[in-house]
Write a protein that binds this DNA or RNA. Structure first.
Lengths: 162, 162
DNA sequence: TATTGTTATACTCTATAACTATA
DNA sequence: TATAGTTATAGAGTATAACAATA
């Protein structure tokens, strides 16, 4: 196979599915980070807000475990989100060691914006495909994620990312 | 939509194509890193070896530019690869400032192993799909990479990764 | 004694900027 | 003066471990 790269005709290695996924996954993650960055958030923080919305009152330890983040990192992020009035820490009455996390009204509103941004991201990223093609692509990708035992909706990289 | 996560029945956000790509891209990159790690290499180093094989005699600056890496990082990597007898630096006769990079015989042999490892990676990652499904998936993914202007065979993340 | 949340610290990584040798 | 390669360094980020409060 031959093609133009860097202005020079060069041998292009036949790119397989795995490498295409690596390329597109990085691209998708970067673009999503840009979009939520406009809301003052990082992708891991978005994951936290979603998790808190899904399971209000959960502890920081549980949150860290579910998202694969370090507990010390969770402290920093919650400090930030709490300082911006998006999340509240409440000492549990049953175990005064734990801080129960919940979204404020403002946090809930921001999550709505996040959902809108995510929808824009999805639409923008798949622009080149028509509805039918997207559906077929989605079905194939779901098959792959299941075969790799990836948890639905959980980014596998929160343990190392920002 | 509802499903089991973390042992608890919870609301799962409908995962779109963009997020599935993020998940799978991270997974593919991680698994590839593990495989080439067994050869003592990082993915960026693999990219360097491939680039040097494609364009023997290129300078470190050109290599850095093409792969989106910092020149100072290239120095470190080439130090390593040269120390292991995989790559040679030769002062250019036309411009004694530049170091022309070439693969040694050993480097060429290692690149053969890398190609084998990449093939195993591809096969292993797509195990859940039959030949026909892989071809259709590949075609759809190629459409997406083209629509996003991604250069064939070039990982977009070498500028930040290890 | 074990666990939650927090803080401190050591370690790694990245990016920038100096520095040399050549042009 | 500008550029290729190198080295040094400052800043950021990560993971580990120490710590106080509570169980």
């Amino acid at each position: 196979m031959t093609g133009k790269v860097f202005g020079v005709t060069a041998e292009i290695p036949k790119t397989g599915v795995a490498f295409l996924l690596t390329q597109l996954g990085t691209q998708a993650a970067t673009k999503f980070a840009e979009r939520v960055g406009a809301l003052g958030l990082t992708p891991p923080q978005v994951g936290m807000l979603r998790m808190i919305a899904t399971r209000p009152g959960l502890s920081q330890q549980t949150l860290a475990g579910n998202l694969g983040m370090l507990p010390s990192k969770v402290v920093t992020f919650v400090d930030d989100l709490e300082g911006r009035g998006l999340v509240t820490r409440t000492r549990s009455t049953r175990d005064r060691r734990v801080h129960e996390l919940t979204l404020t009204e403002e946090g809930t509103e921001l999550l709505d914006k996040i959902r809108a941004v995510a929808a824009e991201h999805e639409a923008g990223f798949c622009q080149a495909l028509d509805t039918d093609e997207r559906a077929r692509l989605q079905a194939l990708l779901e098959r792959l994620t299941e075969s790799h035992g990836l948890a639905p909706g959980v980014h596998p990289g929160y343990r190392t990312i920002r």
